[in-house]
Nucleic acid binder design. Sequence first.
DNA 1: CTCCCGTGTTGGAACGTTCCAACCAGTAGG
DNA 2: CCTACTGGTTGGAACGTTCCAACACGGGAG
Lengths: 342, 342
Amino acid sequence: MSQHRATIVDVAAKAGVSKSLVSLALRDRERVSSASYELIIAAIADLNYRPNAAARSLVDQRTNTIGIVVLDLHNPIFAQVLDGLLPVLRQRKMNSTIVTGNAVTEIEISEVSKLQELRVEGLVLLAHRMPASFIHQVAQGIPMVIVTRTDIRGNGISTVSNDDVYGAKLAVRHLIDLGHKRISHITGGANQISLNRLRGYEEEMSSHGLAEFIQTAEANFTDRGGFLAAQSLLETDSIHAERPTAIFVANDLSAFGAMAAVAEAGYRIPQDISVIGYDGISLGALKTISLTTVSQPLTAMGEIAAHALVELIKTPSHKPQHIRVEPELVVRGTTGRAPLIR
Amino acid sequence: MSQHRATIVDVAAKAGVSKSLVSLALRDRERVSSASYELIIAAIADLNYRPNAAARSLVDQRTNTIGIVVLDLHNPIFAQVLDGLLPVLRQRKMNSTIVTGNAVTEIEISEVSKLQELRVEGLVLLAHRMPASFIHQVAQGIPMVIVTRTDIRGNGISTVSNDDVYGAKLAVRHLIDLGHKRISHITGGANQISLNRLRGYEEEMSSHGLAEFIQTAEANFTDRGGFLAAQSLLETDSIHAERPTAIFVANDLSAFGAMAAVAEAGYRIPQDISVIGYDGISLGALKTISLTTVSQPLTAMGEIAAHALVELIKTPSHKPQHIRVEPELVVRGTTGRAPLIR
DNA sequence: CTCCCGTGTTGGAACGTTCCAACCAGTAGG
DNA sequence: CCTACTGGTTGGAACGTTCCAACACGGGAG
């Protein structure tokens, strides 16, 4: 049954050579005679031998592995970033292991600690909920690239992000151009990304003399959160008799939820209420959804992050980079002219 | 700078005790004097020491880690399965590492091989594209649970799945009940899941005397694939002047794409064409999408898979289990009565 | 005939842990 | 006063690799 997994010594014995030769054969077949090579290969197949990564990395003093921490696997933006990230790492012959803390700080910290024990050679954080002090301490030992957040900087930490303040302004300006005044905002909670988008919203509203219409509801980047936040915005309506004619939602997934709430409340999109999201997830492009949004080049950001990390690992003395990409307004079907009435 | 990562020996030296005592302190603080314990803890903090997982697992002969292979991170069903899977493993104090091959056989095999070298103690496959021969060989050494597929069975392989044939029949019967005859099917390609859903479709059509209306287009479980397949079904129309009045799509994500194609072609859903999906992803429940579907209890399946794997690891002699869960018809807004005309 | 060289091969040390047998004080029991 | 035990601690072996210095062997050069 559970026969002791074969080791290199078992292979050597079976092939009638030394363990050193087996090791050599596996790493550089040119340097062993073809007679020995055949024997070794046969023995390996026979015993179903697999090298033990733990033993190898112990002596090599390197694991060739990088850890990827994903905030929340439900949000498709991360899959799109991984589309850029993983192929680059694969091509560089680096292994990767993906973990997630489901947006729970405590779990994220414990997962990162495990990655430290695994001696990953680099870390990519696709957003996160960990305190700066912890991040800094980790970064002391492991080069790190943080994607989407830029507030934590320091030695060994590169960042890849878009300009959220600017992107938010794009969104708000688009709505203003369409004649909207009552533009509400659904946030993503108390994190840097969300705060920047909030700031862009507030600044753009103010600079167009619409400060009095600033109104926000807090969500958490999930569809459910967006749904509830939009409901609360529309309820506010019945009290003040002044509902928003447009909602800028902090991300696309929440925007999906917000759209559902708007529809359930009996309003048409965009005739009664316009909705604009942020991120540019691919589902939003489908005709049936057709979400107007501010799009980030997610896959490109993944590639850039991978290259930045490789760079950081190769030459740790090198200064960390802080790469900014441009967000872009993508107008689709969920935004339209402000209703004339009222 | 890159000062040699601290080892247990460094800690011992700093604390003025033996490495054995440090090791003991870390594993069972009760058995060391509090004086020594304080010294050790101080030294650990001082040196920022982290145990080396490779060294530990080498001597322990166990990694306490299970590998999770995800077919495609873009499909939200897997995030929902992981919602059930990960907490159970975490609670059992097992580590997990997630990898994906992006639905590419070659990459999947290479990722699984790496997991073998890492000596994971169990494997969960959330769908996959690997040949049976390979899977069997892997399962010889590592207990495995396959979620969604049941065609590969054998020693050390448990499965968790829903009855796809039955589920597909539910979908088709629902459409027939609504008066549809021209019911087309968009498949998910040449894999077991897809073939079973296809079979359910064909059998249900035939048993209602609708064999002549059987018509399929092939997709690949992605939104893009569903979009293209639906387009081809609707083009067929212009030739035969007989377009489908309903489309049963092999999964929800493809159904999203199909809905977009239907809308782009100028048909209304469900007045002109009904669409039904399969899986029950949470986005489909949003009012703005409101996709009728056959729902699988995804999160529960994740929990079940975790328990099945733990079972298999604990007692390898135990017979593998093959657990079936019930799919369920969820009627929402994308299906309606067949149009009377024509 | 001896020396040197190259090709293939080998034993042993090292990597950072855990665990076990053994040790060292004290203290309690006879 | 000796023995037995207990709580705290320790050195060394072992885990499965890689790598290095060294070796065996045959053939060509001197």
